[in-house]
Amino acid sequence: MSLPSIQRVFLQSIAAADPEGHFVNVDNIQTYYKIAIPQHHQILLQNQQPLPYEPHKPVILCLHHFLGNQYTWKFLMQPLADATGCHVIAYDRVAFGFTERPDQWEEGKNPYTQSASVEFAIQLLVQLGYGTKKIILVGCSTGAAISCSIAIRFPDLVHSLILIGPSLRPDDQGPPPVARNVLGSAPGKLFLKTILHRYIPLTTLYHDVHSMQEWETVIKPCYRVPLNLPNFYESVSWLIKYFIPFEILPNKHMLHQFPILYIAGDDDKYVEKQKEIFDEMIEGAPKNAILEYSVIENCGHLPQDEKPQEALDLIIGFLRRLNIH
């Protein structure tokens, strides 16, 4: 029982190198997050003045991809906050980044299930004081799948959806059942450790890593830091073992009520038929539905890493059309 406290102290000591990061307790899990607030709010706080009460302003919550962490939103958070006037939050999902990785849990409270990831996101916002605000969900890959599931389960809480390289079909959300059983076993954990330590971050998720100026100095190191943190490989194995795909497209009619921006890279090797998936998702939508599809050229599965300015421009333009500015 001493491991969680030791793990927490260790994670805090490593994360302390970045003063912008913070921890909050969510369902008894120490969770690492960052918040970007508009610059005019920062000035008010510096002058010890209260922030304006803006009940109409939604909060923007960013959910990263599998084997990613909150770092992936580094280039988008502050510009997005300044352009929209919204507070922008990104956090490390359970099993990733600097968030604690429990090695035991109560029955019915397994933090490594898909349903737990949905509840966790909502509870995070509650703990941070945003429980009464509508949510603009920005999700990448499996983070987009979680975003859609939040919208399906808690429609009254959601303002709009921004899906980046979304993994919405069961085969794109995770490995098949046979692979899950193997990777969730003890030998599977050893295999994961060997493969992940060698290949993270996966270069196949990008169009061309050599075109990214900060690939070797910033991007690659930020994805590799968690590899040496406590319970990393065990938690990834648990996540795979208990994985059950979200049923998103069968419930697509519930998504049609939300404005949706769907962003895809033209060289997405992970999810190759994005336009086909988008067309399936919007099938049967009412004529007044706001459903937009955009492609970024010379870009892979993670536009926010590879083409951050292009992704940012698309997101800001979409939100301004929704009168968020």
Rank of each mutant, 00 (worst) to 15 (best):
E247T: 02
I248C: 07
P230W: 02
T203R: 15
I244M: 13
P303D: 13
T204Q: 12
K269D: 10
V209N: 04
I315L: 05
K241F: 13
D267W: 01
A285L: 06
P201G: 01
P308D: 01
E297M: 10
P303W: 04
H256L: 07
F232D: 09
L255F: 04
Y242K: 11
K252P: 06
N231D: 09
T203W: 07
V225H: 05
M281L: 15
V236D: 09
E306T: 01
E292M: 15
R224T: 09
F246W: 11
D268C: 04
P286H: 07
I296Y: 04
K273L: 11
M254W: 08
V271M: 08
H256C: 06
P226H: 08
I240F: 14
L202H: 12
A311G: 00
Y242E: 01
P259L: 07
E306A: 03
P259K: 05
K241G: 13
Y233T: 03
T204F: 14
H207P: 01
S235M: 03
L261D: 00
E272Q: 13
E306S: 06
I200Q: 00
Y270C: 13
E280F: 08
V209S: 01
K220W: 09
E276T: 05
I282Y: 02
P201A: 06
P230E: 03
F258M: 07
H197P: 11
Q274L: 09
V295G: 03
I296A: 08
A264Y: 06
L205E: 13
E276N: 11
P221G: 05
F246M: 06
D268W: 08
A285V: 11
L312A: 10
E276V: 07
K252I: 13
I260K: 07
N228E: 09
N288L: 06
S237K: 04
Y206N: 15
N288P: 00
I290L: 03
A264G: 10
A311S: 04
D208L: 11
L314G: 02
M281P: 05
M212V: 03
K252T: 07
H253D: 14
Q257H: 03
L291Y: 02
Y199H: 09
P259A: 05
